[in-house]
Design a protein around this nucleic acid. Structure first.
Length: 277
DNA sequence: AGTCTTGTTCGACT
DNA sequence: CAGTCGAACAAGAC
């Protein structure tokens, strides 16, 4: 569930948590497969003792830059981080726990176990980053670059926008929202857009992501399996969605009924009047 | 009991 | 090669 705005919210909170300069004094692993590639022992050996120098976001990854090497965390659907007291016993869905030199403790919970931690040596980071597409909120995401991507692919807009190799950070929620804002049908082919349409979509992508960040992310449902940030705070963006999970409700632009369909095996929400193929 | 779900990757097709 | 599709990963809500 966490997409760019949710991950960005978490990273900003981590940045504000004074973790910079603190060392990782211990790592506990309760579910081996939450660690990518390394065995729990190898991961422990590589990470313990390292100092956190910076915390950043890359696409949907949380990136901990260490004094040697880099720690990537992808939350996938249900991963979450929360500071707890080191005395707390592991919770039901706790998969990994980090202890810090200042006595703090960070719990990683992941009900569905899809999230992954990955330690990389600095030399291997370039390869990893090469697989991550354009950052849509960076100066690199120009209209020209976006047009180039669209024109050089012949694919439905929805799977194209979901593909992290092209643009990094969009997921099901923000793709549906961006397509609605730009009045484009999710099954329209990437290389059939007019200049105006490409411009509108480019602008819409930036707008929905910035709005998501401003609202500190989208928390679906009222269950604690859903997204919340490190501080335990829920997002507010779910109250301002125009189409995502709004099927049966009216389009705020034209009054038609929002419908749900399937595109590229993903639940997809559109206004059938505003978004014609 | 069966269906659905927020992300990503992989292999088998076309 | 480019793109599509289903499965797999796993758990729980409905």
């Amino acid at each position: 569930m966490p997409e760019l705005p949710e991950v960005e919210t978490i990273v900003r909170e981590l940045q504000g948590s004074k973790l910079k300069g603190v060392r990782i004094s211990d790592v506990s692993i309760f579910w081996e497969r939450s660690i990518q590639k390394d065995s729990p022992e190898a991961f422990h050996q590589k990470v313990v003792g390292k100092k956190i120098e910076d915390i950043m976001r890359s696409g949907k990854h949380i990136v901990f830059h260490l004094d040697q090497g880099v720690l990537y965390l992808h939350l996938r659907m249900t991963g979450k981080l929360i500071f707890i007291s080191p005395d707390e016993s592991p919770s039901k869905h706790e998969r990994v726990r980090l202890l810090f030199s200042d006595g703090r403790c960070l719990r990683y919970e992941d009900q569905r176990k899809f999230g992954k931690w990955r330690y990389l040596e600095s030399a291997d980071v370039g390869e990893k980053e090469a697989a991550i597409g354009l950052e849509p909120l960076s100066e690199k995401f120009t209209l020209v670059a976006f047009k180039h991507l669209l024109e050089h692919h012949k694919q439905k807009l929805k799977p194209f926008l979901l593909n992290q190799r092209y643009i990094a950070g969009l997921g099901n929620i923000y793709v549906d929202e961006a397509l609605w804002v730009s009045c484009l049908h999710p099954e329209k082919l990437t290389n059939t857009l007019t200049n105006k349409e490409m411009q509108a979509l480019h602008k819409a992508i930036i707008a929905v992501l910035e709005k998501g960040i401003k609202n500190q992310g989208t928390t679906l449902g009222n269950l604690n399996s859903n997204y919340f940030s490190v501080s335990g705070r829920r997002g507010g963006n779910q109250y301002q969605l125009n189409v995502f999970r709004q099927e049966g409700l009216t389009c705020s632009r034209c009054g038609s009924t929002i419908v749900k369909m399937t595109v590229a095996q993903r639940g997809t929400h559109i206004c059938p009047s505003c978004q014609k193929i």
